[in-house]
Simulated assay, not measured.
Amino acid sequence: MDATTPPAPDHPPTLRLDDQLCFALYAASLAMNKAYRKTLAPLGLTYPQYLVMMVLWEQDSRNVSEIGERLSLDSATLTPLLKRMEAAGLVQRTRAVTDERQVVVTLSAAGKDLKRQAEGIPATMLCATGCTPARLVALKGELDTLRQNLSQAV
């Protein structure tokens, strides 16, 4: 069976909302964002800002296109987000010396300090899921595979 041949379902697909994987993913995503909103509020971060911070905490001084690629965000979405983060004092944006068309994003001192405050977030979110670490690793692997399959299908 190749990627274009769907597996035989246990029961025929229906138009019932509760039978739709897309809705289950959508609803889970909404619930996850709500939980993160509550968890991130004390840090003054939105969920998309938190994602940018994680990318920069992994490796500081990245250009906008690298951040966008890592987060699957286009520059039209990312640029206003980065401007707000710069205004909040979390990052600095500068033109690359080698190519002035590129904008490099670097953590400010406040952005670096925020990492210490954020270190408990993964454990908090693990508790919120009600899953074991092993179950979350397995689930993440399944979702990564699903995302790759869907990306290849379009």
Rank of each mutant, 00 (worst) to 15 (best):
G130A: 09
V91R: 04
L73S: 04
L25D: 05
A8G: 05
T46G: 04
Q49H: 12
L45G: 10
D18M: 00
A8Q: 14
E58R: 08
L71A: 05
L73M: 04
R70P: 14
L82F: 14
Q148T: 02
T98A: 12
S151I: 01
A118C: 12
S65K: 12
M85C: 08
V105M: 15
T14V: 05
Q59I: 09
A96T: 00
M54C: 13
I67P: 13
P13F: 11
M53I: 00
A24F: 14
P12A: 14
Q49Y: 14
A118G: 04
G44T: 01
A41D: 04
S61V: 02
A110W: 00
I121A: 03
L56H: 03
M53T: 01
L146V: 07
T5S: 14
R37G: 04
E100R: 12
L139P: 07
Y26M: 15
C127K: 08
Q152T: 09
A118M: 01
A3P: 05
G89I: 10
L45F: 07
A8K: 05
L15D: 11
Q92W: 15
P13V: 01
S72D: 12
T129K: 01
P133W: 15
N63A: 13
R37H: 11
L146Q: 07
L25A: 01
N33L: 15
D144N: 11
L56V: 10
A8E: 13
A35W: 09
R95I: 10
Q59K: 12
